[in-house]
């Protein structure tokens, strides 16, 4: 009668149930969401884009590998967060960037952006943006020289500057074209919204196609992979603020319309894939609103008054820096306690 097959019992404490999502699976969602934008990058910028993405991913993953303890390497790489950082950085690079710079950028992203902080989850700044800031500071010319968008017919036309030797700048003669933001800022010229939407403009390889970025962002929102408050706050603030600036300064000023603000430059990529990076954005719901509003405000301000046409990079990095403080002051009111 006695049950002799007494199993050796585990003593794991409750809760025994877990919802299905795991951290690597959450990362996978971001990879999927970036597929359309990556495809658009390849479509418009051909093999150059492919090579840039591969090298920056390689730089990031190799750095993670080298700087992680031997026995934790496999585990650290397996969450794919380093590769994702590499991809995100790659998408913010101009098509003609020498590949060695892309590799260095990926490596700095992970090295200074993540490893020295203590690995996944501990960094204050978004690693991809930190890498981009490093590249922009170190190679300002290479990072602000843009080639025109091509089409699938020109897939194999590689920018010769991609193959500059390490520590060399490369030649930029013929290919320099201004981005829509540059045109707006320096030439007072607007680009048709249609082009901004589809992505056949000059710009960083993954930032030009608003349509495909929106698709990816929508996917993340529906999957609940990102906090909806951050994009909502950024969009609302940025469009409202640029509308106000436009109204104050009159239509013939070189101030962009709200739609232009949203669909140009790195705003969409930054909003959906960098500002919403959970590690470097606030934990609390109210904090997310403040964070998003801050970014929306700063990006317009920097674009209008800064020396460079682009503003998303510093807007996000600045708000990253404010995140611990925001978290501290926006702790939710505990049930049954007065705030």
């Amino acid at each position: 009668m006695m049950n002799n097959k007494d199993p050796k019992l585990l003593l794991q404490s409750a809760p025994l149930l877990r919802q299905e999502l795991t951290t690597p699976a959450a990362m996978k969602d971001v990879w999927i969401a970036l597929l359309p934008a990556t495809a658009a990058a390849l479509w418009f910028f051909g093999l150059s884009a492919l090579l840039l993405l591969v090298t920056s991913i390689a730089g990031a993953v190799l750095t993670e590998w080298v700087f992680t303890d031997k026995d934790k390497r496999r585990f650290a790489i397996s969450d794919t967060s380093a590769g994702l950082t590499g991809l995100l950085l790659g998408l913010t690079l101009p098509p003609g960037l020498p590949l060695w710079m892309a590799f260095l950028g990926g490596s700095v992203s992970i090295g200074l952006g993540k490893v020295i902080w203590g690995g996944l989850g501990t960094n204050l700044f978004n690693p991809a943006l930190l890498g981009r800031a490093f590249l922009l500071g170190t190679f300002p010319i290479a990072m602000t020289t843009w080639g025109p968008a091509g089409g699938p017919g020109e897939f194999f036309q590689i920018h010769s500057s991609n193959f500059a030797w390490p520590l060399m700048q490369g030649q930029y003669d013929a290919l320099s074209t201004a981005t829509p933001l540059g045109l707006m800022k320096f030439e007072h010229e607007t680009t048709a919204l249609g082009s901004l939407f589809m992505g056949n403009t000059a710009g960083s390889i993954g930032e030009t196609s608003s349509l495909f970025l929106l698709l990816g962002g929508l996917f993340l929102l529906l999957r609940r992979s990102i906090d909806w408050r951050i994009p909502a706050a950024i969009f609302l603030t940025a469009s409202l603020f640029s509308l106000i600036m436009l109204l104050i300064n009159g239509a013939d000023s070189n101030f962009p319309s709200p739609l232009f603000t949203l669909f140009s430059g790195g705003l969409l990529l930054g909003t959906f894939f960098m500002a919403t990076d959970p590690v470097t954005s606030p934990l609390t719901p109210r904090g997310c609103w403040i964070f998003g509003i801050g970014i929306g405000f700063l990006v317009v301000l920097i674009r209008l008054y800064g020396g460079l046409p682009e503003g998303m990079l510093y807007a996000i990095l600045l708000m990253n820096a404010a995140t611990p403080l925001i978290d501290r002051y926006t702790q939710p009111k505990i049930f049954g306690r007065k705030s």
């Binding site: 585990l10 794991q12 025994l16 149930l17 877990r18 795991t22 951290t23 690597p24 959450a26 585990f75 969450d79 690995g119 996944l120 989850g121 501990t122 906090d227 959970p278 590690v279 954005s281 934990l283 609390t284 719901p285 702790q331 939710p332 009111k333 505990i334 049930f335 049954g336």
Partner: peptide
């Protein structure tokens, strides 16, 4: 039901905050 994936670092995704009925900050 008892096997668990490995423990990953906290990615500050705030899912625990959204779960806590007492509005505590489990991540922290």
């Amino acid at each position: 039901e008892t096997s668990r994936p490995p423990e990953y670092p906290c990615i500050r995704c705030a899912r625990c905050l959204d779960a806590c009925p007492y509005f505590l900050n489990p991540s922290r």
